[in-house]
């Protein structure tokens, strides 16, 4: 895929470890996470109801939805605990010169 698909999110120090930030691009919204082994990105909105995961809790490799505690694996997007049952979309992430990029298409 062409270079343009990589969108710059921000600098690597804009996210604390075991935490996330919200990233909006055009009409889409994402969560970008810093885990102990690197950066990851998923869709921003929970698959259960229309709630942003930015207020959720990151624990190890999991993000817990702030509304009803549905849990997703951040790396695979897999829905791990009800009421969430549909997987969350994930996106490739790369770091270049201390900047985080995600590939959206």
């Amino acid at each position: 895929m062409s270079e343009e698909n990589w969108i710059e999110v921000g600098s690597t120090d804009s996210i604390e470890e075991e935490d996330l930030i919200r990233f909006d691009h055009q009409d889409k919204t994402f969560c970008v996470y810093k885990l102990t082994d690197g950066f990851y990105a998923t869709d921003g909105i929970c698959t259960h109801e229309a709630v942003h995961l930015e207020d959720g809790l990151v624990m190890d490799d999991e993000i817990e939805c702030p509304m009803h505690q549905g849990i997703f694996n951040i790396k695979s997007g897999e829905a791990l605990s009800p009421p969430a049952c549909e997987d969350l979309k994930t996106y490739p992430v790369k770091v270049d010169n201390d900047k985080i990029f995600i590939k959206i298409n």
Binding site: V51, L53, D55, G56, L57, E64, C65, P66, M67, Q69
Partner: peptide
């Protein structure tokens, strides 16, 4: 509003 308090309640 929506999930604003979720993380702190979980903590």
């Amino acid at each position: 509003i929506a999930g604003k308090i979720g993380r702190d309640i979980r903590i």
